[in-house]
């Protein structure tokens, strides 16, 4: 294993686009060559070494590489874009589009992650210890293709539109989520352990969303199907009981919502329809 450490040389005031910070583009390069990689600081073309102190040992294949980032990276965007293997450890917060289009490997963030975390992801694992903002595992505007594979785990809360246009893979949010979790979802699984702000599963056509916490109401475009004691998520049993809803019927969808009965006694009126 080879570890490369990147530390910002100064505090960035404008956005830094650094898709080159990934095991794939570091592999097979010397530290000097890595330093020559191109990044954008606002509208200026820069070299990686102008913005970061780069230390450590390199390796020939991405699998062997671990990139450690520390310091304030809130303005650094698109870290780990399209990475296929290896590890990225972020000791702090990460900026927009972390792990966008990722295909493999792991990314771990000790702090928070900004929006579009793991957007259009196809494989690999992202774990965020803090909170994530909007569009976790989401799609690019208008494309209708969100996350297709891999795993995203957020220990804190997540914002709006978690799993937007998701087609496969698994998202686990251990805290609360904003509205529109699983909007336009086509496949895959989302597990929310906290509460939802509402409108969960809007326009979903397929896939499965499990909500353990509270929700005020279910969209009128869903219909109750069942009351189940437990369900399986990624091979593991999750204890319920759950109300099972099917929808979104306005999109002729057959997605499933598992809503905890315990946390939502106000939804008990649905039981008469089962």
């Amino acid at each position: 294993m080879a570890t490369i450490t990147l530390t910002p040389k100064y505090s960035f005031t404008v956005p830094v686009y650094a898709p080159c910070i990934s095991p794939d583009s570091f592999a097979g390069k010397t530290l000097k060559e890595i330093g020559e990689l191109e990044v954008w600081e606002g509208n200026r073309r820069k070299k990686l070494k102008q913005l970061f102190d780069i230390k450590g040992k390199t390796a020939d294949t991405p699998e062997e590489i671990t990139i450690k980032l520390s310091g304030n990276l809130w303005k650094v965007r698109r870290i780990g874009e399209e990475m296929t293997a290896g590890k990225i450890l972020i000791d702090g917060d990460a900026g927009l589009h972390l792990g966008v289009k990722m295909r493999g490997g792991t990314i771990t963030v000790k702090g928070n992650a900004d929006s579009w975390l793991g957007s259009q992801m196809r494989g690999g694992t992202i774990e965020v210890m803090g909170n994530a903002k909007d569009y976790v595992g989401g799609a690019y505007r208008g494309s209708g293709v969100g996350m297709r594979g891999g795993t995203i785990i957020v220990h804190g809360n997540a914002g709006y539109d978690v799993g937007e246009w998701m087609r496969g893979g698994f998202i686990k949010i251990m805290g609360n989520v904003g509205a529109y979790t699983g909007v336009h979802m086509q496949g895959g699984t989302i597990l929310v352990q906290g509460d939802s702000e509402g409108r969960i599963g809007a326009l979903m056509k397929g896939g499965k969303i499990v909500l353990m916490g509270k929700i005020d109401s279910i969209l009128p475009s869903f219909t109750i199907q069942d009351l189940k004691k437990r369900t399986k998520v990624e091979g593991e049993a999750v204890e319920g009981p759950f109300y099972v809803f099917i929808g979104d019927l306005t999109e002729d969808g057959s997605g499933k919502l598992f809503i905890s009965k315990k946390s939502n006694p106000h939804l008990s009126f649905y039981e008469r329809l089962i």
Partner: peptide
């Protein structure tokens, strides 16, 4: 909610 209900 209302628009979705209308769509139904």
């Amino acid at each position: 909610e209302i628009i979705q209900a209308l769509r139904m």
